[in-house]
Design a protein around this nucleic acid. Structure first.
Lengths: 348, 348
DNA sequence: AATTGGCAGTCAGAGGAATCGAGTGCCAGC
DNA sequence: GCTGGCACTCGATTCCTCTGACTGCCAATT
């Protein structure tokens, strides 16, 4: 009798196949699956009684459980976990699907549009809520800095990086700033910062004030500060979401309400933390299932992958849905989209 | 016996007060309200039987209806409409609430942030889904145009308007463009366009190509085209949303599912159309109730107001929820927020 | 040792009957 | 025009039974 690789447990190979069958059937039907249903729908070549024995084993290992005494079985979080871990080799998407991804994303008109499209695409490929994290600035370089006077004491700073990221910010100056001063400041900032790595922005911008008349220095420092905040705050901040309607559609899979789940998504902080914690497996995808997550998401599963922006920076994207989701399809879709986005952003 | 102003109908003033009581109680309790409940909770000084007579009238006018033969009454869409129209004088928000709005919005760091904060604020003030439309460019002027070469044949255009709006876009050039050419183009574009109204961008940018060598003209035209698209496509496009969780919370108020409602919101097109159709009343707010809306929103109500950006441009904002909502509070909140946003954006 | 058929036991869910009670419409009398 | 009173309606609730899809266990079989 074969054993699983992972030491202690005493679960036969056939039992693992039974688990797989249970997960698949349950995901497809939302009905607890019984021994007879398994015998009918899968070719195990053994009787229902034998399956029942295996199921008893699986239950002992807490991979499945029965909602009530005389009902079929449902996978536990642990059961899904084992199922997902077994899913080592994701079947790639069909050529048609891959083409659809490419065709849709290639229409993107700018960076923001890439993310907006990606999140909609993911949502429609998986029928789940999709999430895309904006990329961290990473080791990007400064391309250009623009200062736009909005009023005598208000200035808009626009910060453009190598990778095409544009960031704007409004600042209030301590003194009135005329066009000449702004022009001079703009020129000096660009001379000093253009091409520099983001990490250097703080020190370089901070040392500029010496080049100005004493009564201007305070204003220069305020601007330098704003630039530093561009770099700081946008290190790994925003999350875009699409497909919230899908969460409502799958509401019955949440014993509680979907309300706290949606709230957690809108809060962003929980999800950003979760994204940062996820360790990708060898396939470049990863899933967090049920109670592996924070309380608010204890009935949800999150599938993520990472994308990069030509070395410049990287971030995560993924989908969120009920634990009863089609992991195989969703993991394949998330991986494919992440790869395509990386390719799209990486091409120089 | 007093009559309503609006001609034909035969509804007494007291009957209108009964309608008000029904709307208020129903909104508060989600239970059909009966004649006895009204006598108990409001001081009408008449008996339940009298109220019943009034209710029979109201039912005849289709302002209320009974879910089933022997139950209390529920306002119809038409009933809500009359109720809202009666609500001529919105009580302003409390000083505390107004301060909270100011304090929260004043922290905004840039334009995007203003909208992000506004939408969250509205959502939490009303406990409904909040929507903010990005402002149309209107009669804004060009402040600055920046060209950022991303690769020999890719260029990012950054378009900055008077009002602080920043727009970026990636374009593919037909030929390789060196730094010198890009610099020249940038200078000429800014010289020609800076300070011009957006409406002029098309003609002015289109006539620039004569100033360049013949082998450059195609590239110049591509850039001019991109600038034109900045103006065109961002005329009144995006919608930001917050508080989707609130829709789920009020799910029981939707006989069907909230699914189509959420879908319509994510689609944006329905909402943008609706926003553009709304005629504001003398108070600067407006409501669309139930079947007054598109099919997908036939169980929803939308309350909107407009905000402006110092003459530069204007757009709508508002909240969406079940027809069974607190119109009085929500209309007051929407109006107050729209006014504050206008003030914030208008101050030069 | 693994597998099997058989059988008793369990329990959620469906269906149906009985009851309750909030609320109505109507009418005669004030 | 308002009121009290009365008969009536019907959704919701409760309680019942019945059904059927399961399981667990055991003794027989390979």
């Amino acid at each position: 009798m074969a054993r699983t690789r992972k030491g202690a447990t005493m679960v036969s190979d056939r039992a693992l196949h039974v688990l797989r069958a249970i997960v698949q059937d349950y995901v497809a039907s939302r009905e607890p699956v019984g021994s007879k249903a398994i015998v009918d729908r899968h070719q195990f070549g053994v009787s229902a009684a034998t399956i029942r024995n295996d199921m008893a084993l699986l239950e002992e290992e807490e991979l499945i459980s029965a909602p009530h005494t005389s009902s079929g079985r449902v996978p536990t979080d642990k059961g899904y976990r084992v199922f997902v871990d077994q899913l080592a080799d994701l079947r790639p998407l069909s050529a048609g699907q891959r083409q659809a991804i490419a065709a849709f994303l290639d229409q993107s008109v700018d960076l923001d549009d890439v993310f907006a499209r990606t999140v909609r695409l993911l949502s429609s490929l998986t029928n789940q809520v999709a999430l895309v994290q904006y990329p961290t600035l990473g080791n990007a370089r400064v391309r250009h800095i623009e200062l736009v006077p909005m009023s005598p004491t208000r200035l808009m700073t626009v910060f453009i990086t190598d990778g095409g990221r544009v960031d704007q910010r409004m600042i209030e100056l301590p003194v009135e700033a005329d066009e000449v001063f702004v022009g001079e400041l703009r020129a000096k900032l660009n001379a000093a910062l253009s091409g520099r790595a983001l990490a250097e922005v703080g020190t370089v911008a901070g040392s500029l004030d010496g080049q100005f008349a004493p009564d201007r220095r305070e204003a220069v420092r305020v601007v330098a500060d704003a630039l530093l905040r561009h770099v700081d705050e946008h290190r790994s901040d925003r999350l875009v979401m699409a497909g919230a309607a899908n969460l409502v559609r799958t509401e019955q899979d949440f014993a509680g309400s979907v309300y706290p789940v949606l709230e957690a998504i809108e809060e962003q902080v929980t999800l950003l933390k979760l994204f940062s914690e996820m360790q990708l497996d060898s396939q470049g995808v990863s899933a967090r299932i049920g109670r592996e997550n924070d309380e608010a998401l204890h009935e949800a599963a999150v599938v993520t992958s990472a994308y990069s922006m030509g070395g410049d920076s990287s971030a995560k994207l993924g989908v969120l849905g009920p634990t009863r989701m089609d992991y195989s399809n969703n993991m394949a879709a998330v991986r494919a989209v992440a790869r395509y986005v990386s390719r799209l952003l990486g091409e120089e």
